[in-house]
Simulated scan of single mutants.
Amino acid sequence: MLPGNLSVFYPSVFILDGLPGFESAEIWISIPIFIMYVMAIFGNSVMLILIATEKRLHSPMYYFLSTLSLTDVILSSSIVLKILAIFWWNLKEISFLACLIQMFFIHCFTSLESGVLLAMALDRYVAICTPLHYTTTLTDTLIVRIAIALIIRGTIIVTPCPWMASRLPYCQTLHISHSYCDHMAVVSLACTNITVNSAYGLTVVLLVIVFDITFITVSYVFILKTVLKLPSRTAKYKAFSTCTSHISMILMFYTLGLFSFMTYRIGHIPPYIHIILSYFYLLIPPSINPIIYGVKTKEIRKAAYKILFKSTE
């Protein structure tokens, strides 16, 4: 039986504390956050424009890369705008519904980013291990189906998190010791047992990470075997060079994610450490991905030079 006061179950607002213990330094901390956000928006927008306008980039690898860029824009925007509002204008209040929506977007698009990295590993596997069947295997129809499947996966597994969070009784403080509505930071405010919420959140993370990393690893094992069988060093180097950008993105994304995830599961770690690690996890990959691919990928550099050259004529 629900209490007469429904605000216990559906509080009107939460208060995001920003970076507890470092309030006086928030304006300075906001500078690198703002720089990373500008880099993410500018770099990924340029990447999307290049892939859309340059016909040479209309191939599966770049379709996946454009999906990654769009994911990075949405993911970074879903957290940075509120963080800057807190740090610059002290706008710490967030409505209950907006908090749940932000929670969904953060975790859904994090799952989508991991899935896109898996899809890009599949692309490299087909390109190197079965190059003669590359265009017939990775058709436009299959790419669309993969993208839709990844979106559905993220939506299905993440939706229960904000839904279960909305059903908890929040009868303690409504101050969230974070800069955004992270799932565990929100449900930890509930005045009831949150074992189910915590277990489901852990299950989602493990399902996504274990599944994606396992298949990424298997893909690269086959890729490595194929490359080592190539007759010349030049061929081996060329094959490896096509994978370096993707491997760099994988290592950065999952390493930062692992550190961020573990800080919630290890006791006696100050909240600000987890918050700062979450900044790294959610902001560094979106800001660095365009640079990694722009520097490492010859076709993208050529497309950028072509557009710049035309603009100066």
Rank of each mutant, 00 (worst) to 15 (best):
I194T: 14
E313Y: 08
I148S: 04
I83D: 04
Y180D: 09
T139V: 07
I41D: 01
R56S: 13
G257N: 09
T297V: 15
H175T: 14
R124Y: 04
Y279C: 12
V158E: 06
I307A: 11
I284C: 07
P286A: 02
I146C: 07
I146P: 05
Y293A: 01
H274D: 07
V196Q: 07
I209K: 12
S166I: 02
M252K: 06
I300H: 01
N289A: 12
L57K: 05
H107F: 14
A185K: 05
C161S: 09
L277S: 11
C129W: 03
S311C: 09
F211P: 00
L70I: 14
C171H: 12
T234Q: 10
G267D: 12
F309N: 10
A147N: 13
I269C: 04
Y170E: 01
M103I: 05
L308M: 13
F104Y: 15
K298G: 00
L138Y: 08
Y279V: 14
E113I: 10
I273W: 09
S241C: 07
L308P: 00
N197H: 06
Q172A: 04
E54P: 00
F96L: 01
L251V: 15
A52Y: 11
T155Y: 11
L251W: 09
T234W: 02
A165H: 03
K236E: 03
L206K: 06
L97C: 04
V80Y: 01
T139M: 05
P3D: 14
E313W: 10
F253T: 15
V38A: 14
Y272W: 15
I307R: 14
I292M: 06
E26I: 10
T192V: 08
I51R: 07
I27P: 04
S78W: 03
L283N: 08
P169G: 02
S69M: 08
Q172M: 04
I216L: 06
G267I: 07
W28D: 01
Y180P: 00
R145C: 11
I223E: 01
L228V: 02
G267A: 12
R124G: 02
I151T: 12
P271Y: 12
T203F: 14
S7G: 00
N193M: 00
F253N: 09
P286F: 05
A185N: 13
F105R: 05
Q172I: 02
Y293H: 15
N5T: 07
A199N: 11
L2K: 14
T141G: 08
A40N: 02
K225Q: 12
S69R: 09
C243P: 01
G21E: 06
F109C: 05
I269A: 04
K302L: 13
L282W: 11
W163E: 03
M252D: 03
G294L: 06
Y180M: 12
L168F: 01
L112G: 02
V8K: 14
D182F: 12
T173E: 03
T136D: 10
G21F: 09
L283D: 01
G115K: 11
T226F: 00
M249I: 14
L224A: 11
K302M: 08
E23I: 10
N5R: 13
W28A: 11
I273T: 10
